[in-house]
Design a protein around this nucleic acid. Structure first.
Lengths: 185, 185
DNA sequence: GTTAAAATATACTGAATTGTATATATCGAA
DNA sequence: TTCGATATATACAATTCAGTATATTTTAAC
């Protein structure tokens, strides 16, 4: 099935932003990569910022959903699923297109206090934390809120350090730490 | 004591990069803020990239040193110092000029594989991890290497989430998790 | 098949940005 | 005092980039 022009643009933009950063990539480069005229790009997205936002939303949905599906394919048990999160994280780190968290990178480039980019980024992190908390509740763990926030710390730290040190093994260490935290909760 | 021109430039650049990001800030803005001619700027730094590198090195030394001094002022005991790290981290989050990790943000904007920016960033993280590992060894903990890496995960995660969610309290959660990990090691 | 929307091709505007050029002034040290 | 390095003031060159303009063609629904 063929992608719509809009989706082709989103995908090309996603690839380029991921490779080079947001301000480093011009709209000309995006439209060229997509094989779509700049005029058409501006027909779908009224500004570069709007395009960036759309890319983040597009990526958020797809990535988080596929992530959760992968986790759920690993086990039926909620507690095991909590640990499986770190296995999937490691797979993500090992994928060729891993380049850190696209949301955090966007916020780093556009740190404006009330910016929409910040909101989208916050929203994505909140949704993921809720997912972990849901698993913790199903696992019958009492302080699910605190625990899920702590696991988030490990995951975010692993993302950063995997990017900086170029070492996907961070995920393994995070998993070990998570195991201890879960046992103690 | 008066700062050298070079240092004035570094400081102005640091403030602006921290507020707006790297590519969003032009050399004109930096020289203007420092009250120093652009020609003079280019006398001290041969390119913008060189300036960014110098800013990162300048910041790295000052920030990491002042951080460690603050930690050491909190306690004499190595194990207590390991926990004090998270208190100082929280103070950092609460400071008005906190805007995430400047190294990670730089790497996000200039993700080039072999770039000097990446090297400086890696170096800084490694030095900090060694500091934690040193404390863990002095505290007589056996698996100091693994533990220090796990504490790094918590710290980096806290930095990211404090920035994203605008909530310095992340540090408190990280400290609790750190406490559990230290106890279990 | 007609028609309106969507897409192309291509050129252009205006602003911003990195880095340089030139001519002049300040200032510390030999 | 003089000389060389550092700094200023200001203008300029060369690109790059976001976004627009115009005229033409394709597509898809009615």
């Amino acid at each position: 099935m063929k992608l719509s022009k809009r989706e082709q643009l989103l995908q090309s933009a996603l690839e380029l932003f991921s490779l080079f950063g947001y301000s480093a990539v011009g709209v000309d480069a995006i439209s060229e990569r997509a094989g779509i005229t700049k005029k058409t790009l501006y027909h779908h997205f009224h500004s570069k910022e709007e395009l960036i936002l759309a890319v983040l939303r597009y990526y958020d949905e797809r990535h988080r959903n596929s992530f959760m599906r992968s986790v759920e394919a690993k086990s039926e048990n909620p507690k095991e699923r909590m640990l499986a999160i770190f296995d999937i994280t490691e797979e993500w780190f090992n994928s060729s297109n891993f380049s850190g968290c696209l949301f955090v990178r966007a916020m780093g480039e556009y740190p404006d206090e009330g910016s929409s980019i910040r909101r989208v980024c916050q929203e994505s992190k909140i949704l993921f934390q809720r997912y972990i908390q849901g698993l913790a509740e199903k696992a019958g763990l009492k302080n699910s809120s605190e625990l899920s926030k702590q696991l988030m710390l490990l995951i975010e730290g692993a993302i950063t350090l995997a990017q900086v040190k170029n070492s996907p093994l961070c995920a393994k260490n995070a998993k070990k730490a998570a195991h201890v935290l879960i046992q103690n909760s």
